[in-house]
Design a protein around this nucleic acid. Structure first.
Lengths: 119, 119
DNA sequence: CTGGATCCCGGGCGATACTG
DNA sequence: CAGTATCGCCCGGGATCCAG
């Protein structure tokens, strides 16, 4: 597991929330997972779809997602190296969570999103 | 808004996911929100319920949550100062999201990813 | 094409001390 | 009780170069 900050024994409200957050949080994981929800992608494809992320970070985040068992990394032994990334079953199971996050964002942040006004 | 890393204009898959994550992410926000879901709490009560967090960070996170319109901060003019924190309507609307996160964690982490307990 | 290794900087975050 | 102010460490993460 990448980073579970505080002891996961203090399961006061929020423990599991934090535990799950620790998996999908991380600067680019949410975006990566969202992209992979649409299907398998190779490294260069992910890069192209995420202009803002550096190659270092992309590799980094992918490794963490892999370590957390959320994505599979398939290396094809070819002269031009090729690596495919796809969601594991566990990864796919996050769809509902990601959908919940996206849905809330669309409703409560939308396009203008009053950070405090709203009320 | 506390920290929306990349332009929220590049709404490729994951944009809203990240936007929402930016609000509830942040080391302690998930836990804070979870606690406040149970009702209004004053500063010291929150501290007591979250042994691991420093006073500085707690204040910090509470301020960000307030700036994002997720919680209300009520100051009572008393000799022993007293400040109550409670969820705004917007904050309460996160319940489903937090529930989704917690539920996923309980199912996909709680069962087999446990260090020793579990099984 | 994929990704490792290095250098380096800003800031996140903890510890501590002070205030109203 | 509920913060604010200051110092300092650590590391996340960008840029760059190298390798299979």
């Amino acid at each position: 597991m990448s980073k579970l900050r505080h002891s996961r024994l203090d399961c006061t409200p929020g423990c599991m929330v934090e535990a799950t957050l620790a998996l999908i949080d991380g600067k680019w994981k949410g975006v990566i997972l969202s992209h992979l929800l649409e299907g398998t992608l190779r490294f260069s494809e992910l890069r192209r779809r995420m202009p803002g992320v550096t190659q270092r970070m992309l590799t980094n985040q992918l490794r963490e997602l892999e370590a957390d068992g959320l994505i599979d990394r398939t290396i094809h032994a070819q002269v031009p190296p090729r690596v495919d990334y796809s969601l594991t079953e566990r990864g796919h199971s996050l769809r509902e969570v990601l959908d919940a996050l996206r849905l809330w964002g669309e409703i409560h942040i939308g396009l203008f999103a009053q950070p405090k006004a709203a009320a």
